[in-house]
């Protein structure tokens, strides 16, 4: 399946870039005629995935985060957020609502939010190698 349009951007895992990343994805998604609610959902899901790279994958270092956004037939938007950080031992456990290794200031809800705000989520991860989160959503009001 070839995308109709695609963009990729890479940036260092500094928290100040969280706002840029979600706004850039939303700007790209605008071509698919999304509703305002859909745009808000996309921004939130991207914010979750990117924040996880910053606070978990590259906990004590600065590394690169790659975001790829593609637009497919039938108004399908696919977002891939990839890091080369610490990886996840047990993905199933990590995706459980309220599970967190992030301490007091984290709710453990990031994956639950991505699942509930997008149509589909896929997580693949290798400890020591990195993590790749794929988010899919059908856009448009039809």
């Amino acid at each position: 399946m070839k995308p109709i349009n695609t963009v990729k951007f890479t940036f260092p895992s500094r928290s100040v870039n969280e706002g840029f990343a979600r706004s850039a994805v939303a700007a790209f998604a605008a071509q698919a005629d999304p509703t305002l609610d859909q745009l808000a959902d996309i921004k939130t899901a991207v914010s979750e995935a990117v924040t996880n790279c910053i606070v978990h994958a590259y906990r004590d270092t600065i590394g690169l985060i790659a975001v790829t956004v593609s637009f497919y037939e039938e108004n399908e938007l696919r977002i891939i957020v990839a890091d080369k950080g610490c990886g996840i031992e047990d993905v199933q456990q990590a995706m459980q609502p309220l599970f967190t290794t992030g301490g007091e200031e984290r709710a453990g809800l990031g994956f639950a939010v991505m699942e509930s705000f997008m149509d589909q989520i896929k997580v693949s991860s290798k400890p020591g190698r990195g993590t790749r989160v794929t988010l899919v959503k059908k856009l448009g009001s039809r």
């Binding site: 939130t44 924040t51 007091e104 984290r106």
Partner: peptide, 16 residues
């Protein structure tokens, strides 16, 4: 105007 799960963490942390 925008809030992700970090906002939940902010509320829970202040609650504690």
């Amino acid at each position: 105007t925008f809030m992700d799960s970090s906002g939940i963490g902010l509320i829970l942390g202040r609650h504690r």
